[in-house]
Design a protein around this nucleic acid. Structure first.
Length: 274
DNA sequence: CGTATGCCCTGCGCGC
DNA sequence: TGCGCGCAGGGCATAC
């Protein structure tokens, strides 16, 4: 499940292959993955465009075009953007193929079809609501303990639900939310407003630490995720709680528990997290 | 407004 | 061995 570290890894691995390339043709094997505009207009506007740069906001990949437009991709659960040779075999669930002017291809593969593309005009027309309302980048100075404290104040929702809200901070998903809360020593089901100043400071620090370390290892791969060159991420062995139900806590040895918080599968150590 | 719930989708692991 | 069920969850729509 691509979260900030995975999307950042895709961005970094795609950039050298896509920068300066012109999109020659687009094959829509599954037009439903195009969210905006209509598939025909999407293809018409994109064919012939040159890719200038690739950015990222939260979990959104922003492929900037020479003409001022932006191709926005969101991978959701199972989306993959991979740069390949034209001759590479078509894997199952390949939905969109971009032919590039050097003979290579950018392919969008998505088993569960949750992800997709928005093509924004030069003035941002077509921007998805979620991107518009995105909170600060967790690795930017704007995301600081004071900001986090202000956002958690008065919230009765579980702290995990709060930090998963992309309007509060952009890019945390289920894996790194659980990991951050473990590192901070805070139980995921605690009311957001109940956290002390010290706990908020630890949580802020933990979010940044876990994201930076995960980026350094090019993300977490279970079975599906791969970066823009098709390589798995290496953070799996660094996970402290996620996907470790029943396994001994790496700090205290107590078995990791799994519950549901805010409708999401949630992992934590009942001994290390208060 | 804040909070909670269900839906989209496919593959996989589980129980029988 | 096969079948049906529940689960996986990001973002959004809907309800209260």
């Amino acid at each position: 499940m691509p979260e900030l570290p995975e999307v950042e890894s895709v961005r970094r691995t795609l950039l050298p292959h896509l920068q300066g390339r012109r999109i020659r043709r687009i094959h829509l094997l599954k037009p439903g993955q195009i969210r905006y505009p209509e598939p025909d207009a999407f293809v018409a506007q994109l064919e012939g465009e040159r890719i200038e740069d690739i950015g990222r906001r939260g979990k959104y990949l922003l492929i900037r075009l020479e003409g001022g437009g932006v191709l926005v991709a969101h991978l959701r659960m199972s989306g993959r953007l991979v740069h390949t040779d034209r001759e590479a075999p078509l894997v199952k669930h390949t939905h969109v193929i971009f032919d590039l002017d050097d003979g290579t291809q950018l392919r969008y593969v998505d088993m569960r079809t949750f992800g997709g593309f928005h093509l924004l005009g030069p003035h941002g027309e077509g921007t998805p609501a979620g991107l518009q309302e995105l909170g600060p980048e967790p690795l930017d100075p704007e995301f600081n303990p004071e900001y986090l404290a202000g956002k958690l104040a008065g919230k009765r929702a579980p702290v995990k639900a709060a930090i998963l809200d992309q309007r509060l901070v952009a890019g945390l998903g289920n894996i790194y939310a659980d990991e951050s809360l473990f590192l901070a020593g805070v139980r995921p089901d605690r009311e957001a407003q109940s956290l002390t100043g010290a706990e908020i400071a630890r949580l802020h620090r933990s979010c940044i630490d876990v994201l930076q370390r995960a980026i350094a290892k090019r993300g977490t791969t279970f079975s599906l995720y791969a970066d823009g060159e098709g390589n798995a991420g290496d953070f799996y062995d660094d996970l402290q709680v996620y996907e470790r139900k029943g396994a001994p806590c790496k700090v205290c040895g107590h078995p990791i528990e799994k519950t549901r918080v805010g409708g999401r599968g949630t992992h934590y150590c009942p001994q290390c997290q208060a």
